[in-house]
């Protein structure tokens, strides 16, 4: 464990908590892409199938929290507060993300076993899972500031993981090319948002995307 990965995981946890609190407190999932949340639930389910393999208390605890929180979020969006779910703007064709991720995982992986292919699929899936949400923000042209804080924390987590991978390569001579390439793609997808967040939201303005 290193500081980059620890802060990254905490940023990830913060994002998930911000989202859950936003939906629960406002009793509304307006502006939130249910499709992205379903993709995240798929990511954690397919990645943490190795949950029974005990690595550490921290590792097991975080995996359980991420799985539970992602399903709770999907439940809140599609069941409890489904009246506030914005179908009209959450229209990204997720099949164009799931299928290519799965095919790519079958073609490019470290080991052609069920667990390894599913882990690889979860890595590819996670790198594009935020697209429906970013697409929805661009369609609505704006996002509530709490939603942009969620996106900033979520985007920062994988950016910090890139620093973690650099650190691990330089100190442990260890690297995982699949995770690194997908992590860079994932972080790049947030760049446009990061720019808007830093230039606008941090100045107290609303996040307005050029329509």
């Amino acid at each position: 464990m290193n500081i980059f990965r620890l802060v990254g995981d905490l940023s990830h946890l913060l994002a998930i908590i911000i989202l859950l609190l936003k939906i629960w407190k406002t009793r509304s999932c307006a502006g939130i892409s249910g499709k992205s949340q379903i993709l995240f639930a798929i990511v954690y389910t397919s990645r943490y199938l190795d949950l029974p393999n005990f690595v550490s208390m921290y590792n097991t605890l975080m995996k359980i929290v991420f799985i539970a929180a992602s399903y709770a979020t999907v439940y809140l969006i599609y069941m409890k507060f489904k009246a506030t779910y914005d179908h009209n703007h959450d229209t990204f064709r997720v099949e164009f993300l799931v299928l290519p991720s799965f095919v790519l995982a079958l073609l490019i992986n470290h080991d052609f076993t069920v667990l390894e292919v599913l882990w690889t699929f979860s890595i590819y899936m996670e790198s594009v899972a935020i697209l429906p949400q970013l697409f929805m923000v661009s369609k609505t042209g704006e996002a509530e500031s709490i939603t942009s804080h969620y996106l900033f924390a979520l985007g920062s987590y994988r950016a910090l993981y890139i620093l973690n991978w650099i650190y691990r390569y330089t100190t442990e001579d260890h690297y995982d090319l699949i995770a690194i390439v997908a992590g860079i793609v994932q972080t790049v997808l947030y760049c446009d948002f990061f720019y808007l967040y830093i230039t606008k939201v941090l100045k107290g303005k609303k996040l307005q995307l050029p329509a």
Binding site: M1, R5, D9, H12, D50, N53, V55, S56, N59, M62, K63, F66, H110, E116, W119, Y161, N164, R168, D173, H174, Y175, D176, L177, I178, A179
Partner: peptide
């Protein structure tokens, strides 16, 4: 060492 998958990462 080539991609020995980092099992300890989330």
């Amino acid at each position: 060492s080539f991609a020995v998958k980092s099992k300890d990462e989330l």
